[in-house]
Design a protein around this nucleic acid. Structure first.
Length: 125
DNA sequence: CATATGACGACAA
DNA sequence: ATTGTCGCCATAT
């Protein structure tokens, strides 16, 4: 767990944002960070996902590197699970790469406005 | 307090 | 396409 409430708050916000990524789409770590209201927080997104329990409903597999590649090493268990889940959602992966231009999640305005927490940082002091 | 370490990202060779 | 550097920032030691 996070050492302090502020960090825990951000972690939960990151998880919530990841839950907004629809099946069939993917998002980069940096994108999740920005939407969650944490500019330049790509690494924090990875940190937050790393803390997910083994069994979770958070669609962590939809978060990949901006390069269109999985953050895991090819052949690793995590990599295989991620690829398998993405393929289940009809996300095409060629040569281990996903076409971001085509699959990148593009939240519409309503969606973002409905989640003001991303824009207004109401983190508890 | 000082380093080291990442599920990262942008950029230059 | 690959590799290396640097910036970033929460955690770990």
């Amino acid at each position: 767990m996070a050492r302090n409430p502020k960090s825990q708050y951000r972690i939960e916000r990151i998880w919530a944002t990841v839950c907004d990524v629809p099946a069939g789409s993917v998002a980069s770590y940096g994108q999740i960070a920005e939407i969650a209201g944490i500019p330049r927080g790509a690494r924090q997104v990875g940190h937050a996902l790393r803390q997910l329990p083994g069994k979770t409903d958070v669609p962590w597999h939809r978060v990949i590197r901006s390069s269109g590649r999985s953050a895991f090493d090819q052949g690793s268990r995590a990599y295989n699970r991620q690829v398998k889940r993405l393929m289940m959602e009809d996300v095409v992966i060629l040569e281990g790469r996903i076409d971001m231009q085509q699959y990148r999640w593009q939240p519409d305005l309503d969606e973002l406005l409905w989640k003001p927490s991303a824009a207004w940082d109401n983190a508890p002091s």
